[in-house]
């Protein structure tokens, strides 16, 4: 279980943007979180991915409460939650080729160069990236292709949970469908949980097992 209990979070000393939000994602379950822009759902997504320390509340993964955030979170917990952001341009290091971008998490957890390359290639193929594209840098590919690479990077360590923060907001309909299918295949194969954050009710309703409104899980 990925549990968010009564999370309050914000930035610096300003008013918190998330107040008392609670949400649970079971293994294998797909939960859609629906909310207007600016309501704090991206902040909650970052909390769920252990990338932002909440001011109050608890994140519990498989019964284990999380105490550290960002670098201070144990690596096994951090890598257990994969994350895809809204803007592929900002989520990819402009210096890395797509091949390196996808292999980066494997290298970061200490896999050998050869093993990382092989698994990156496998994952790239699963998201629909092949051949010459993998040798290009982020500015040489389209938003859709780059977002595929970012999804591959999130999946390459086989996380038990996946947080997609407006993953398809910048993409056209066919790429959206393709990426949703990739996530669904992965989820079925690995019994992974999904937290899909977005503002598109039609998409989230069709994609997820259940969709919750922001106003239902958090205080205004």
């Amino acid at each position: 279980m990925l549990e968010l209990r009564d999370i309050t979070a914000g930035y610096d000393r300003r008013e918190p943007v998330v107040r008392g939000a609670s949400l649970t994602v079971a293994p294998g379950e797909a939960v859609g979180l629906l909310g207007p822009s600016g309501c704090g759902k991206s902040t909650l997504a970052k909390v769920a991915a252990l990338l932002h320390r909440p001011a109050a509340g608890q994140v519990v993964i498989d019964g284990e409460p999380v105490n550290g955030w960002r670098h201070a979170a144990p690596r096994t917990l951090r890598t257990a939650v994969g994350v895809v952001f809204q803007q592929p341009r900002l989520s990819a290091d402009p210096r890395l080729r797509l091949r390196e971008l996808i292999a980066e998490p494997l290298r970061a957890v200490g896999r050998s160069r050869a093993e990382a390359a092989a698994r990156a290639l496998e994952t790239a193929e699963a998201v629909g990236l092949t051949g010459e594209l993998l040798g290009r840098r982020p500015h040489e590919v389209s938003d859709g292709q780059l977002q595929r690479a970012c999804l591959a990077r999130a999946l390459v360590l086989r996380p038990s949970w996946l947080v997609c923060d407006e993953m398809t907001a910048m993409l056209d309909a066919s790429t959206t469908a393709a990426l949703v299918n990739v996530v669904e295949d992965y989820r079925r194969e690995h019994r992974a949980g999904l937290l899909a954050v977005g503002h598109d009710r039609v998409l989230l309703d069709r994609w997820c097992d259940r969709t919750v409104e922001w106003s239902r899980i958090a205080q205004a």
Binding site: K46, A49, L50, L51, R70, H71, R75, R78, T79, V81, G82, V83, F85, Q87, L90, S91, A92, D93, R95, E104, P105, A108, V109, C150, R153, A154, L157
Partner: peptide
Amino acid sequence: SRPYIDAAISGGATRWRVAARHLLPG
């Protein structure tokens, strides 16, 4: 503060790796 640093941390990168692989080359 770029999201790709967040992505690297989520991908298991240590402080040193983030510095050496993403910050320093930048």
